[in-house]
């Protein structure tokens, strides 16, 4: 075979979006370094896939992320899907949970970008795909910590784009609405009201949107993977107060101030 083997680093690869992203890249004959805290989940993702290598690593540990990136060698694509989203009221969620969300979702993103971007910028090519959320644009009930962390990811992506534009590395910040992953199903079962009874969109459609976005101009930083996500973001920009009210009504607890029958 004369093909050029490309390497991808995928975080959050034990399940959900990260696992599917790793498997699709492995199917396309990429060399994939799949990263997660969950060793058993990683093993499931990598089953019978000799070109999918697993590394147990906590993205909140900058030295560990640095080591994994160094071992991976020159990467062409980084898919950073590792994230957590425990829900809790803005004034009541335990501070330790708030801090943990910021460490995993925001600082994890900073660590992954710092470990991989310099090499891609040196080589003048690469793709950094960060997973944010629609919640960063339209926070609802119980999403204060999660939406804040993802809004920080959005701002980080935008600043990073400003500082590195034109140097050959494509950055994408993907902001899907609810995605049908094991994590989302668990949260939706626990908090049916706060998730608005929404059925998650299939993870494959989110990844299709990411693939298509890579053909668009570099400045097209944010990816909104389906029509409902795009419509919601547009509505928030054009009609912020009305959109906020609709999201409030859709995500309020049944006994909350914005009363809504269950």
């Amino acid at each position: 075979m004369t093909r050029e083997v490309r390497t991808a680093l995928v975080t959050g690869a034990a399940g959900g979006l990260g696992a599917l992203a790793a498997q699709r890249l492995a199917a396309a004959a990429w060399d994939v370094v799949a990263v997660d805290l969950d060793a058993a989940g990683l093993a499931r993702t990598a089953a019978r896939s000799p070109n999918l290598h697993t590394r147990v690593c906590d993205v909140t540990d900058p030295a560990a992320v640095e080591r994994v990136a160094a071992e991976a060698g020159p990467v062409q694509r980084v898919v950073h899907a590792a994230a957590i989203s425990p829900l809790g009221a803005a004034l009541e969620q335990p501070l330790a949970d708030v801090e943990r969300v910021l460490r995993v979702d925001y600082l994890g993103t900073v660590h992954v970008a710092r470990a991989t971007m310099p090499g891609m910028l040196d080589r003048g090519r690469g793709e950094l795909i960060l997973f944010s959320s629609l919640a960063a644009w339209v926070p609802g009930y119980l999403t204060a910590a999660y939406a804040s962390a993802k809004a920080a990811v959005n701002a980080f992506a935008e600043a990073l784009y400003q500082e590195t534009a034109g140097r050959g590395v494509t950055i994408r910040c993907v902001c899907p609405r609810q995605v049908d992953t094991p994590m989302y199903r668990r949260i939706a079962a626990e908090h049916p009201a706060a998730t608005g009874g929404m059925q998650g969109m299939p993870p494959g459609l989110v990844l299709d949107a990411v693939d298509r976005s890579l053909a668009r101009p570099a400045a097209d930083l944010f990816v909104f993977p389906d029509r409902l996500t795009r419509t919601t973001v547009t509505a928030k920009r054009l009609l912020p107060a009305a959109t906020r009210r609709v999201i409030g009504l859709r995500t309020a607890p049944p006994d909350g101030r914005a009363d809504r029958s269950p």
Binding site: A19, L20, Q23, R24, A26, A27, A28, A29, A47, R48, S49, P50, L52, G204
Partner: peptide, 11 residues
């Protein structure tokens, strides 16, 4: 495209 299955990921 086989993403998730008993024979691993492949095209």
């Amino acid at each position: 495209r086989y993403a998730d299955g008993d024979l691993g990921p492949y095209h």
